[in-house]
Every structure is written in C-alpha cells, then in structure tokens.
Amino acid sequence: MIRPASRIASAAAAPALVVVLLATLPVWLGHHPYYVNIASQILLWAVAALALNVLVGYAGLVSLGHAALLAMAGYTVGLLLQAGYGHLAADLGAIAVTLAASAVFAVLALRSTGVGFLMITLALGQIVWGIAYRWAGLTNGDNGISLAARPAPFGLSLAGAEAFYYTALLIFLMALVSMRILVRSPFGASLAGTRDQPRRMTALGFNVWLIRFLAFLASGFWSGVAGLLYVYYHQFIAPPAAALTASAEILLMVISGGAATLLGPIAGAAIVVIMKNVASAYIERWNLVLGVIFILIISFMPEGLVPGSVRLARAAWVWLRARLPGREGRYTQERIS
C-alpha cells in the first residue's frame, strides 16, 4: 500500500520541482537580462518544437514547412497592429490565419505521406517565404515589419526580460500540459495508430485522413502561438523567419532531442538555442555547425539525443558491470552452475 503512494508522490514531485526551478530561474541566473532572454528563447522554440513533434513524432509526418506557419502568425500580428488593431484582436487574428493556413497546408500535404508529405510542405513553406520576400507591398520585403511595443495584458507590461520570461513560461507550461493530455488521450492513441498501422486503422473504421488533419491543426495552432511569442520577443519579423533554414532548425530540435517523446523536443530546443548563441559568439558559421550536427545526429544517434543518451548510458553500464571484478566471478560461477 505504501509503494503506490510513494510512487505517486515521486511522480508528482519531479514535475513540481522542475516548475519551481523554472519559476525561480531568473534568480539562479542572477537576474541577468542576457541569460533570462536566452531562457525565453528556449521556451518559445520549445513551444514550436512541441508543436512540430505532434506531426513528426506522433503522426509520423515530417514537415519542412513549419517555420512558415510560425512566421505567418508573426506577420499577421505585425500587419494587424500596423493597421491599428489592438493586441488582443491582432493575436486572435493571427491564430485564426495560422489555423486557416494549416488547414490549407494539411489538405494539400495530406495527399501524400512520408517523403511526399515532406516535399509538399517544403514547397508550401518556400512559397510563404517567397511571398514574405517578394510581395514588398504587403510584407515590406527584406526589411521586415517592426512592432512598436510588446503588449501589456491586464496592465502588466511585458517590456522587461523577466516579465516576458514569465509569460513565455506560462504559455510553455500550457503547451506542455496540453501536449501531454493530447498524447495520452484516445485521440493520441489513434494518432499513433495512424502512424504505425494506417491500413489496420482504416480497417478498424478510423478515418485516418481526418485524424491526421486534426493533428495538423493542433500542430498549426501551437506553431501560431510560438509565432506570437517569436514576434513579441523580437518585436520584428522578416523573411528569414519563414525560410527553409528555420523549418529545418525546428525539425532538428525535434529530432535531436528525440521525436515522439514529451521532453525530447524541449531538450532539443535548449540544445539548439544554446549552441546557436554560443556558436555565434565565436564563429559566424552557424549554418555550417547546424549541418554538421544534423549529419552527426542522423548518422550516430538517429533516435535523438535523449533516447540515444539513455541507450548509450545503458550500454556503458552493462559494459562496466561486466568488467567489475566482484561481479565477474559471480557471472562465471552462475555460468558454470
């Protein structure tokens, strides 16, 4: 009777500890705006990576056009604010536009799966990039759109680094909780079913297309939310936000951390953001580093860093245990007997 209770306690303790740690993070970072801003960036990209993970991890559909959805939300906010709308209206409009774009993306890309899906999302993403870049009358082309200020919901200004961090943290936790609910729900189970056995799922009477479509909308919604965080964090959006490089970066976060896990994309976002900041402090060649990491991870740890490290650690443990002198004797004894 004691064991389940303690197990529940320890199961609740770890997340609570993490939340407390995250909530007090600015204190640990010495209230240094630079580090707090990096933490905010990690949170905002973690939301984007969690959103993409719905498709890549749980639906088995690899999208290379998600930065376009994120950028679309950002651009919509920028354009609506320029047009004189308030922040709330602009945010709601951005989410609506992103959902509509996700629906269009999904209808087209879901004509195919696997590599075909990847190609179509890539082409669609490049088209959004092309519009952002070429349609200067609407998007201001290469110069991008600047936001005058961050919003101040309920009179709380988000202008400071820490105020923004707490907003990002709140939204990140909401995204994480909703992902957990989604993954553990019957819908999440049927989504994983469409990934592993689409034909059997069809035979069982599930509408595989509709399940994938809804997953795409969920992914698009959180990508839009990440886009809002992005545009408010930078107070600026320009075509590179929609580029293939950006989509590939989000995908790298998901894959490097470990797709189809809840924590993997978050770890991946942290790794990529920290690497990007560290790398750009020393070298200009971030894309080179990005490409090399991509290739190394795909070649040596295709399942991602979190599951991959667990695998390597286990292998190392087994290796070590077999070589511990005390144990070795016992092993041979067991074998003999």
């Binding site: 696997g114 590599v115 990847l118 894309n287 490409g291 295709p302």
Partner: peptide, 19 residues
C-alpha cells in the same frame, strides 16, 4: 531509412551553402 537519408541531404545542403 528514407527519412534519415533525406535529412542527411538537408544537412549537406546547409554545409555547402555556408562553405
């Protein structure tokens, strides 16, 4: 493994672009 192959080519695309 189709997907890792595709992503590998993408990684090289970034490297070539930067070089």
């Amino acid at each position: 493994q189709v997907l890792p192959q595709v992503l590998l080519t993408l990684g090289f695309a970034f490297i070539i672009a930067d070089v």
